[in-house]
Design a protein around this nucleic acid. Structure first.
Lengths: 220, 220
DNA sequence: TTGCAATTCAAACACTTGTATGAAACTATC
DNA sequence: GATAGTTTCATACAAGTGTTTGAATTGCAA
């Protein structure tokens, strides 16, 4: 009840400032100035600075996770409980990449905020990320159904590498652009998604097929 | 000249503390207490806290980079100026992975410090990382020589993905262990290296040769 | 209007932080 | 053994932090 206006003004201002300048040097005083509210309002409405950051991050990341699961579910239903591995991987990395990459000038505040969160990794955000395992397990399950002959270890490594490529590309997109002197087009998000999915698919369908761990043997 | 003892005591203590507790909550006072030196000694010997952190990171990362280049050079010389792509990739990700992974109890302070640096990414360290591009260009060059038919764009993406898998695995090794319920053995470093190299090699040798295909037209 | 709760506000609080200072303690050279 | 140059030390500084407080203001229902 009540206005609620102050609360959302704080959220918006905080997201904007964090997106622009990072968590490191944005103080509560910066935020309340940007939001045109009183300093004490943050603690009144959110309890603490960390809870404010957590709320921002949770909001955005459950949105991403929901989208991921929506795509996964749709794909598995369409395939009668089993989806092609490419589609599963696309559901895994697509929403994140689409949410964070794309032409910089039309990148949403939310997107820029999530990039920051991915780069700086401040305590309240780390805590939330650690609870993401259950969510990932759902994808591991779908991947197992898609590739029943594959060992669990390989599935987990494939999942790990898929996330690695997506997140690292987001985190280091600037460096990749500079390194390639602009030749790698990070704005063409669907191309990036396709590249990540393609490589992750190769990782999961080729190479070692052996039943179990087998730390040696393979690609040696 | 002079003792030099204070200086190295600070370096050692700082590295230990940062490795254990992260940059976020280690103060100069913590460091000087651990090193049994006076508070002012840090500013006397290093100028500022950031310069201390920078020196720690530079020391470790030039060691890694030197090892990388040593392996690369040896491989290219042995192959008459051209090395197999697997060996190049191994030179790229091997030293980093070997330096950061391995059985936790026998992990060096330096290794744990570098993991922290990879996770937390504090300003002085970010600044140094940004200067790493020239170093990476040498690997891009070697990769181009190894795969002359490959487009530059593909080379850069392959390089990006190789680094992605290595760094993400380091950063999130704990999560991968938990997700896989211990099935993924992060202590078997050579296996991890082999997996990363294998996937990166596939990314670089298969799929699109030039104009590329998948989603839309092309990366322009 | 009156009363009561929810909200806003200015101000201060309680700390912690990195850094600077200037005197004291060393060390080595002559 | 006096001197000059380093290095150490206790201490203070200045600034910035998130948080708390208690009084004012507002909004709304009876």
């Amino acid at each position: 009840m009540a206005s609620d206006h102050t609360r959302s003004a704080i959220l918006a201002a905080a997201e904007r400032l964090y997106a622009d300048r990072g968590f490191g040097d944005v103080t509560l005083r910066d935020i309340v100035a940007e939001a045109n509210v009183n300093l004490a309002a943050v603690n009144y409405h959110f309890g603490s600075k960390d809870e404010l950051i957590a709320e921002l991050f949770v909001t955005r990341s459950i949105a991403t996770n929901r989208e991921r699961l929506r795509e996964l579910k749709a794909a598995e239903e369409q395939g009668g409980g089993r989806a092609p591995i490419e589609v599963i991987l696309r559901a895994l990395v697509g929403p994140t990449l689409r949410g964070c990459l794309g032409p910089e000038n039309q990148r949403s505040t939310a997107a820029r905020f999530m990039i920051r969160a991915s780069i700086e990794s401040v305590p309240p955000i780390r805590r939330i990320k650690n609870r993401e395992i259950d969510h990932l397990r759902k994808f591991a399950g779908a991947m197992r159904r898609a590739l029943p002959d594959r060992s669990d270890v390989d599935i987990y490594w494939g999942l790990n590498f898929a996330l690695a490529m997506a997140h690292h590309t987001i985190r280091e997109s600037e460096r990749l652009t500079k390194l390639s002197e602009g030749q790698c087009d990070l704005d063409d998000v669907e191309d990036v998604v396709a590249r990540v999915v393609s490589v992750a698919t190769m990782a999961l369908t080729q190479g070692r097929t052996e039943t179990k761990a087998a730390p040696k043997v393979a690609a040696r």
